[in-house]
Write a protein that binds this DNA or RNA. Structure first.
Length: 493
RNA sequence: GGCGGCAUAGCCAAGUGGUAAGGCAGCGGUCUGCAAAACCGUUAUACACCGGUUCGAAUCCGGUUGCCGCCUCCA
């Protein structure tokens, strides 16, 4: 039974979709005015894995992730650069896709842009005005928080407890300091649309109410985003949506924790954010995923070089195991996510791969509020046990053993399909890894291979002194050698 | 001031009330010409501190300390 921590109830609740077998889910996406950073990556990857898992266990998921392509920051940045907001947002939407594709993130079912849903936005604002939840002030329209009794129910705040204007100046036209803008009157040089209240543009929160209900209905299952969005963004979304449609908005609120950089909060104001493009120059995409998924999604996670080096080693360990299995049982035909558990032999009595329960145990971990950290522990546990099984198998491997290995691999790959890890063919992985490293370190592959061949000759002659000299020479170029029974392999360390 | 979270071995990190997953690093082995990889063994005198509930708590309750987040743009 799947349990999900719900920010609204502040506990793990059994998940029950509104419509059996179907999940409707909305996640707040990026405001496209700058390059994506590792914080975006975490959010997008966490929900990517959640969607993959929900689908894997049989739900039909409609997943909506938006782009905010009109807002103050976009306008300011576009003005600085002397380009239109459209040019700016299109540039960063393109970059978003480049980054997320590189991180092996699957596309959402719908990826709407705010500017393409102005009609729906205006429609929601009109309803709010009709219901007395909103009021006009000049060319602006505000939401009146005091008309919505449940205001604060998500974030656990009461209006009277909050320090109004503690950090910002309050607009005098607001009836309550916490009223927020639904529609902003156009200023010269800004993008604008016609509305019943004159030319203007939507406020920040309304787009999500409009787009989510447009694609998913007024009442849907899951709404997610970074934990910073709990207040005010999601609080305001609830007020808008429930105020406009008079029915419950969302059943489950999921929020992911933040990424820290070297123990420090990553933020725009500190200017210490790490951009995905830079990270991917240094680390494998799956290492980034492994790192981000190795903490529970609600906990903060600290991005450090050490952690990434470890994640990188972890990915290599998984692929080395996959390659080893491939060497015994052959490549697997379909790199898809075909289930194997059903065909597994019953308890192997300790022999064999020892990874028989892998998939069910993975599901157990994931059913517990998407505990990917625990799931990854299971993967490494299985990796060790499978390596041991193969170490123990001397000489010819029995047919039974091969079947076990093949099904363990199928489980591993099915898990990998959910986590987005181990999705490449092992040979491709190691080949790419080698060529990337050679390029990065500017090493001449032909020369390395010549030296390796020379060393092999020396080893045949049992000229160990010569062989070790060559090993050292290559080590100086950060080339590491492995003498295996079938020959010497090497990699860039 | 309000709301919330976290504190587990050298480091990272799971943990469903019954006596501590996993990874990295370390040490000792097996294997190896030597290495590497892999595997085995080892590495926590009880999980911040104090008190309580319980036959029994890292796990529940109260308090203390420390760190962090939100209440301002941020995923």
């Amino acid at each position: 039974m799947l349990k999900i921590y719900n920010t609204f109830t502040r506990k793990k609740d059994a998940f029950k979709p509104i419509e059996a077998g179907k999940v409707k889910m909305y996640v707040c996406g990026a405001t496209v005015y700058d390059a994506c950073h590792v914080g975006h990556a975490r959010c997008v990857i966490v929900f990517d894995v959640i969607v993959r898992y929900l689908r894997e266990i049989g739900y039909e998921v409609t997943y909506v992730r938006n782009f905010t392509d009109v807002d103050d920051k976009i306008i300011n940045r576009a003005n600085e650069l002397g380009i239109s907001t459209k040019e700016l947002s299109e540039k960063y939407i393109k970059e978003f896709y480049e980054d997320m594709d590189a991180l092996k993130v699957e596309r959402a079912t719908q990826e709407p842009k705010a500017t393409e849903h102005i009609d729906e936005i205006i429609g929601v604002i009109q309803r709010l005005l009709e219901q007395g939840h909103a009021y006009k002030a000049g060319g602006d329209v505000f939401f009146a928080v005091e008309t919505f009794n449940d205001y604060g129910k998500l974030s656990g705040r009461r209006l009277e407890d909050m320090q109004a204007g503690a950090r910002v100046e309050v607009d005098e036209r607001k009836r309550s300091p916490f009223d927020f803008v639904l529609w902003k009157e156009a200023k010269p040089g800004e993008p604008m649309w016609d509305s019943p209240w004159g030319k203007g543009r939507p406020g920040w929160h309304i787009e999500c109410s409009a787009m989510s209900t447009h694609f998913l209905g007024n009442h849907f299952d899951i709404h997610g985003g970074g934990e910073d969005l709990i207040f005010p963004h999601h609080e305001n979304e609830i007020a808008q949506s429930e105020g406009a449609f008079n029915e419950p908005f969302v059943n489950v609120w999921i929020h992911n924790g933040f990424v820290k950089i070297n123990h420090e909060k990553m933020s725009k104001s500190l200017g210490n954010f790490l951009v995905i493009k830079e990270i991917l120059k240094q680390y494998h995409a799956e290492a980034v995923r492994l790192f981000l998924l190795s903490n529970h999604y609600r906990s903060p996670i600290d991005f450090t070089d050490q952690a990434m080096v470890e994640a990188e080693a972890g990915i290599e360990k998984i692929y080395a195991l996959m390659q080893r299995i491939e060497e015994s049982v052959g490549p697997c035909e379909a790199r898809a996510t075909t289930a194997s558990s059903q065909t597994l032999p019953p308890e192997g009595g300790g022999q064999g791969g020892g990874a028989e329960d892998l998939w069910p145990r993975f599901c157990e971990a994931m059913d517990d509020d998407f505990n990917t950290a625990r799931a990854i522990g299971l993967v490494f546990d299985a990796v060790r046990r499978l390596n041991r099984a193969m170490d123990d198998a001397t000489g010819a491997v029995s047919q039974e053993e091969l079947t076990r290995l093949a099904s363990a691999r199928a489980d591993l790959m099915r898990i990998g399909g959910v986590l987005g890890i181990g999705t490449e063919a092992p040979s491709d992985f190691f080949e790419h890894r080698k060529t990337d490293a050679l390029k990065r370190e500017a090493i001449d592959q032909a020369m390395v291979e010549r030296l390796v061949a020379e060393r092999t000759q020396a080893r045949r002659r049992k000229d160990w002194a010569r062989a070790d000299r060559i090993r050292q020479q290559l080590a100086g170029m950060s080339i590491e050698l492995e003498d295996r029974p079938e020959g010497t392999t090497w990699k860039v360390g």
